[in-house]
């Protein structure tokens, strides 16, 4: 088996005037889970669909399990499993009929397909709903059925395109458990997500994507270090206090505070959030400043994202 399960070099895909992929690069080591993180419209789905042979890219080169995606799509299809954003199951057929159908299309005998279907239904907690039309399944059940359909033949590479978007926490955890099992069995997984937490939980390495290209790549810790960790945020009671509070915050955290006069909000990144919070509260009290709200929070993907894109814009400006 190739050392790299997935390699993409400079993939481009154009729709009209916009590039959905604009020089997309990716290298995924065999047996690892690689997260592709980015907002809607960043090109995540286009990248997955291209690598899974569903979409023809305009330029660049890609291999999956050593097979050229453009020239040997049939071999690639034999090695991959795919779970899309929208559950790709037949809604008229029952859950079991779906799995038997896909098993048969994997050239299993009727009996083998039936046995495999029953085993997967059991594993994903769908045995009771086996005879019901997939169209009557809840969102979580449908996604589980979809995942089951992707692993009828244990794939060497599994593409998961936002597999937990719109799922409740319990269903999400079930999907995560199944993904971990597959990893343990040696499958390479490419997972796209909008949730920092999901990438953090599951991925060995993460690529952050914007406007069709990877703008940052690394382990979760490496990326978090670049993005900045927790932030302390204060909402002052009086707009007049903003400057004083910001000064106090900067003195304690040793970082630049950002103020927003409209919402009377002051924020700054911190390293040890509990210690910083305690110190800030004490200092505010000593200075006689009253605040409406104070707390710490992790950066949202939006912020992380803005930060990373800002980095990139900065660089291009220097280059220009």
């Amino acid at each position: 088996m190739a050392e790299h399960a997935i390699v993409a070099e400079g993939l481009r895909k154009r729709y009209g005037d916009t590039y959905a992929l604009d020089g997309f690069d990716l290298t995924v080591a065999a047996g690892t889970l690689h997260g592709v993180l980015g907002p809607n419209g960043a090109g995540k789905t286009t990248a997955v669909r291209s690598l899974a042979t569903l979409l023809r890219y305009d330029a660049g080169r890609a291999t999956v399990c050593g097979y050229d995606v453009a020239r040997e799509p049939h071999r690639v299809r034999g090695a991959i499993g795919l779970t899309g954003q929208y559950a790709a199951v037949d809604e008229t057929l029952s859950g079991r009929q779906n799995l038997v159908l896909f098993g048969r299309l994997h050239r299993m005998s009727k009996r083998a397909a039936g046995r495999r279907a029953d085993a997967l239904l059991e594993r994903f907690g769908l045995t009771e709903a086996a005879g019901k039309s997939a169209g009557q399944y809840s969102g979580g059940m449908r996604r589980r059925l979809d995942l089951a359909a992707s692993i009828i033949r244990t794939p060497r590479v599994l593409f998961l395109d936002e597999p937990t978007t719109g799922l409740d926490p319990r269903s999400r955890n079930e999907v995560w458990d199944a993904v971990r099992d597959l990893l343990a069995a040696g499958t390479t997984v490419l997972l796209t997500t909008q949730y920092l937490e999901e990438a953090d939980q599951l991925a060995d390495r993460i690529s952050v994507v914007d406007a069709g290209r990877v703008i940052a790549e690394g382990t979760a810790d490496e990326l978090k270090a670049r993005i900045g960790g927790d932030r302390i945020e204060i909402v002052t009671r009086r707009a007049a206090d903003l400057v004083a509070v910001a000064g106090l915050l900067e003195r304690i955290t040793g970082t630049a505070a950002v103020t927003d006069p409209d919402t009377r909000r002051v924020g700054a990144p911190v390293t040890d959030r509990v210690a910083a919070l305690t110190e800030v509260v004490r200092a505010l009290h000593a200075a006689g400043l009253t605040v409406e709200d104070i707390g710490t929070r992790r950066p949202t993907l939006d912020e992380a994202f803005l930060r990373l894109t800002a980095d990139r814009t900065g660089k291009t400006e220097v280059a220009a």
């Binding site: 669909r49 042979t53 569903l54 299809r77 034999g78 795919l82 929208y86 790709a88 299309l105």
Partner: peptide, 17 residues
């Protein structure tokens, strides 16, 4: 219109099937 066609197309089966 459904995702199910995506699954069919991602399987190693005859395209015309």
């Amino acid at each position: 219109q459904r995702g199910v066609v995506d699954r069919f197309r991602s399987l190693p089966i005859a395209r015309s099937a």
